[in-house]
Design a protein around this nucleic acid. Structure first.
Lengths: 342, 342
DNA sequence: CTGTTAGCGCCTTCAG
DNA sequence: CTGAAGGCGCTAACAG
């Protein structure tokens, strides 16, 4: 209906008051009497003025109430991943309560600078696939909170991945077992493969390597055996990557006694594969997962895994970002779910 | 590192050219020689100027490259719903390619006006839970595309829900069958219940009612029987709503021969429930779903359902929005998947 | 091809 | 409580 765009100035004229008063009526109730304010507000509603233009406010005030959530990968994949979507759910609940908006950003985007100017901050879920984004994030001036990885100088939300992996592996492995690992992104390759001697990626910060460290420590403590051709790299949890790796791992002539999986999605795929091949779990093969997604509790036999609360991660990350400068990194707790696969 | 924020003017001074030239170097390559442009761009990179401030551009140009996707419900629920997240995936793929950003908006938000000023348009997935948003959407001036429902004057993306439901029901129901329906949001209630004589919601536009119409037409054509205490209202697909309704429907003394479900999520829940009670499907009970989610193809027995491509819906919706004024509504095709539950 | 100018719509002193 | 004024940082005309 209304196609004319009213400005603050128009309204001020029409009501015969100063622009400052209108502005204050909307933004600073303490600057004028309640009666006056009410009168103005209702008058505005009648003329069809819904408040100061947001684009102008963003420029003038320097903030927008928009928070960018930078996902590790493309948006499509991330949104259908149960762990990531649960995380987003956590973030959005806190943001919505705080009246902030949620801009979804792909980790494979070319740059982040095209939103850095107007966004109020970044929540970064997993190391962005495009590593350049990490640098840009450091260069720009808006606050950043990272989750499941670290960026120099930014508060982060994590669990102790090394310890979680260690405990999980320790409870799965028995003295002298032969072990294989279905990992996440360990090396720089777009497809499923064993790592062999490939140079490891970001060995210090990536959660996949923290988990790997934990697994290896447990393997040593248990005097179990593994070699680098029994460690698989998976570019991501989803799709066929897990199935391929599962097939490979199960068709080795000397099949491992225990397979440690860095995500539940992978573990579930492996479990289905194994059962399909008539392998007895856990009699002939033990399997562990990681994450504790809902579906893991519904598998038969029930998956043994590490539970971490993605929703809490999201909430904490959002709160850290909103807290501003005095935000300090948090390490969240995890819990072993001893199912029936070990 | 760099904490000083350079402005276009600063840069122009530093390089000894006019501000317009710098602006043109970034925005309108045709306005200056390639050599000059290159020189300027590299100089900018050196001083650490990454381009014109976006907030200012939004104000000045009147657009932001941000598209709001308004979900029916709260963001958290929507993101974990397989149908919705697939839709989002479709939208995001097109937007990303077009260099647009994706702002996720909850359908239960209080207002939409706080982004209308700077967003380039709205894609509305399902009727927003907060019905006020629909009115606001019409009042404001940015383009809107609706999906799975209609808003006066806005292009929309739909399938022919009535016809799809009709065909699905027709192939499930046999002469004289007794039928029940597990529906979606049919009346105004926050919990699962039978509709009885409650006033129907938005009867003309809501997809749930189009589907209901289709079901009823098939029931009539087959001389089958149903009554309004055999039609369930579910506030949403997820959670326990489906389980509750399934239990109710299966525990009636005179159990229906056929149950038509308005989503696969509901149908799968019903199927599990029925199997758990030892009911033979489809021998004693026939079930149909709606949507064609991946999981539906994996149930045992395989679910009979209506397949629609959510990803395509998302892509089409995004393209319609980007097309601007000459966008016209589209009706997408569907397909019956005759599984083993009828 | 380059420089100048007038806003985009608002918020915030500051003096009244 | 009001009115005027100076930008926030940029772009699109228009001159040159």
């Amino acid at each position: 209906m209304k196609k004319v765009k009213l400005t603050l100035k128009d309204v001020a004229e029409k009501l015969g008051v100063s622009t400052a008063t209108i502005s204050n009526a909307f933004n600073r109730p303490d600057q004028l009497s309640a009666a006056r304010r009410d009168a103005i507000l209702t008058a505005c509603k009648e003329i069809g003025y819904s408040g100061p233009n947001k684009a102008a406010q963003i420029l003038r005030k320097g903030h927008s109430n928009i928070v960018a959530v930078v996902l590790a990968d493309n948006i499509g994949y991330m949104v259908s991943d149960p762990v990531a979507s649960t995380f987003i759910r956590g973030v959005s609940s806190v943001l919505q309560e705080a009246g902030k908006h949620l801009l979804l950003y792909a980790g494979n985007a070319t740059t982040i600078l095209d939103v850095a100017d107007f966004v109020d901050g970044f929540i970064c879920y997993g190391a962005p696939q495009n590593t350049k984004l990490g640098d840009e994030l450091k260069q720009q001036s808006k606050p950043v909170v990272t989750v499941d990885f670290n960026l120099e100088g930014c508060p982060s939300v994590n669990i102790d991945n090394e310890e979680a992996a260690y405990q999980m592996a320790l409870s799965a492995i028995e003295e002298g077992d032969s072990v294989a690992i279905l990992g996440l992104k360990l090396i720089d390759s777009p497809s499923t493969c064993r790592i062999y001697d490939s140079p490891l990626l970001d060995a210090e910060t990536a959660i996949s390597h923290r988990r790997l460290d934990g697994y290896m420590r447990a393997i040593q403590d248990r005097h179990a055996t593994i070699s680098n051709d029994w460690i698989w790299h998976l570019p991501e949890s989803g799709g066929n990557f897990a199935r391929q790796a599962a097939k490979e791992a199960l068709s080795t002539t000397d099949r491992p006694r225990t397979i440690l999986c860095m995500s539940d999605i992978i573990a579930i795929e492996l479990l289905q594969c194994a059962l399909g091949m008539g392998i007895d779990v856990p009699g002939e093969l033990k399997i562990t997962g990681f994450d504790g997604i809902d579906e893991a509790a519904r598998t038969r036999p029930q998956l043994s895994t590490v539970c971490q609360s993605s929703i809490e991660k999201g909430q904490v990350a959002a709160r850290l970002l909103l807290a501003g400068d005095d935000a300090k990194s948090e390490v969240l707790s995890f819990e072993l779910l001893s199912g029936e696969t070990i």
